[in-house]
Amino acid sequence: MSCKINSLNPPIPCRFYTKKPKITKIKTIILCSSDEQQKTITTSTAIETPTTEAYSVSFKTKRACKLGISWYPDFEYDAEGGMGTGPGAKVTENQANNNDLLVSFDLETLYIPPLTSSTTKFLGLPLPPLLKIDIVPQALQGSVNQESGKVDLEFKAKFLFSIGSLYKAPPLLVKTVLTTEESKGTVKSGRGKRLDEAGNCTLVGVATVDPIDDFLLNSFLSLPTECIAILNAEISIASSSS
């Protein structure tokens, strides 16, 4: 199964430039009169390639988040304790977007709390005790602009629905762009908040979720449908050289 991204501002792919400037040798041949030998002069020319500044980036999710799917009212979600770290790189080249920090979070450090009776409420009531929705991240990468506060992070994760040992559904694959700007689908939409001086922000992402090989969950969620994530987060950036 698959799902579609609903975003007007996809993130910039994370490509870190680490190569040193190339030295290119150029041969120049000078033709002289017949009584002189042909001369060859070899010169070296340095061709500059972009250099990078390295950073360490940390990501934390906070309370008062929301998750919504289909026609159901949004779930109130306490994501306190979610975290992740990863390398960041700022490319120092003459481009209009050279204030963007490209970041890719390490999946081994990336954790997002599951939806359970202790973290999630629906219509003001906790989820039933046995119901659990695990969130298994597959990717979190994109760009952070410290100057403007704009953040665009491509997010991909598996959502695993289970009811104790009685029922386990195939994973729902959700792929979206978590942004501080507007994320808009056909039915659902939301707008985030840009980074403030303390690194706090609100990330919003809308995705279209396709059906899976499970009649019960397809019917319960009315798949295909749209889902939305509204996450309060904190992003901290430190120079690796400091």
Rank of each mutant, 00 (worst) to 15 (best):
N9R: 14
N9T: 13
P10E: 04
P10W: 03
P11K: 01
P11L: 01
I12D: 06
P13A: 01
P13V: 02
P13H: 00
C14T: 08
C14Q: 09
C14I: 05
R15C: 13
R15H: 11
R15N: 12
F16D: 10
F16H: 13
F16C: 15
F16A: 08
Y17T: 10
K19Q: 14
K19C: 09
K19F: 06
K19S: 12
K19D: 12
K19P: 04
P21Y: 08
P21C: 07
K22R: 11
K22F: 06
T24P: 03
T24F: 09
I26K: 10
I26H: 05
I26Q: 08
I26R: 06
I26D: 02
I26Y: 03
K27L: 15
K27V: 14
K27S: 14
T28N: 05
T28S: 04
T28P: 00
I29C: 06
I29E: 08
I29Y: 03
I30M: 04
I30L: 05
I30D: 01
C32T: 09
C32A: 10
S33E: 14
S34W: 10
S34G: 11
S34I: 10
S34R: 14
S34H: 11
S34E: 15
D35W: 13
D35Q: 08
D35V: 11
Q37H: 12
Q37D: 13
Q38T: 12
Q38Y: 06
Q38I: 14
K39E: 04
K39L: 07
T40C: 04
T40M: 03
T40F: 00
T40G: 04
T40S: 04
I41P: 00
T42Y: 08
T42M: 06
T42V: 10
T43R: 08
T45H: 10
T45A: 09
T45R: 15
A46S: 10
E48V: 12
E48I: 13
T49M: 15
T49N: 14
P50I: 04
T51A: 11
T51R: 10
T52W: 04
E53C: 09
Y55P: 00
Y55M: 01
Y55F: 08
S56A: 12
S56K: 15
S56R: 13
S56N: 12
S56E: 13
V57S: 02
V57Q: 00
V57G: 01
V57T: 02
V57D: 02
F59V: 03
K60D: 15
K60F: 14
K60R: 13
K60L: 09
K60P: 04
T61A: 03
T61P: 01
K62L: 15
K62V: 06
R63W: 05
R63Q: 11
R63T: 15
R63A: 12
C65L: 00
C65N: 00
C65Q: 02
K66I: 01
L67C: 13
L67W: 07
L67I: 13
L67N: 06
I69F: 03
I69D: 00
